[in-house]
């Protein structure tokens, strides 16, 4: 049996000059998307400062920032880190811990944090 831990899979990724052109085109496209999202974030941050917004509008902007961040993160993970090209079970093995643990952590800390905040307001 040939040792499969070092060589075989590594060679699967080789590609030709023509395929390389397609891959590079995709890379530049993702670069443009990431840059545009960053520019939007910075412009919104500079043009619509928190101090001038009502609480409702600021909440919307905040959610928008987080949504754009998740979009950026998925482009980096799926395209740049090639996770989109990996097998489905590897993909889920990597992503599920985040979906389960981080979302739960965010939820529970948000809940508890709000209670502590209420306690401060009560003491005021």
């Amino acid at each position: 049996m040939l040792r499969d831990d070092i060589v075989e899979y590594s060679l699967d990724y080789h590609h030709s000059e023509e395929q390389g052109k397609v891959v590079r085109k995709k890379i530049w496209k993702v670069t443009a998307i990431l840059s545009i999202i960053t520019i939007i974030e910075v412009l919104v941050g500079a043009m619509l400062p928190k101090a001038e917004q009502t609480a409702m509008v600021w909440l919307l902007i905040k959610c928008g920032y987080i949504a754009l961040t998740v979009v950026k993160a998925s482009y980096i993970v799926l395209i740049f880190m090639h996770l989109g090209d990996e097998r489905k079970n590897l993909r889920y093995m990597i992503l599920v811990p985040y979906i389960v643990f981080i979302l739960y952590l965010v939820f529970i800390l948000y809940l508890e944090g709000t209670y502590v905040n209420d306690a401060w307001e009560f003491l005021k």
Binding site: V106, E112, G113, T114, N117, E121
Partner: peptide, 16 residues
């Protein structure tokens, strides 16, 4: 890193 950033979020929610 997720834990650290969540801790920041908790501190922000908890402290007015």
């Amino acid at each position: 890193f997720g834990g650290l950033l969540c801790a920041l979020g908790f501190a922000k929610f908890a402290n007015p």
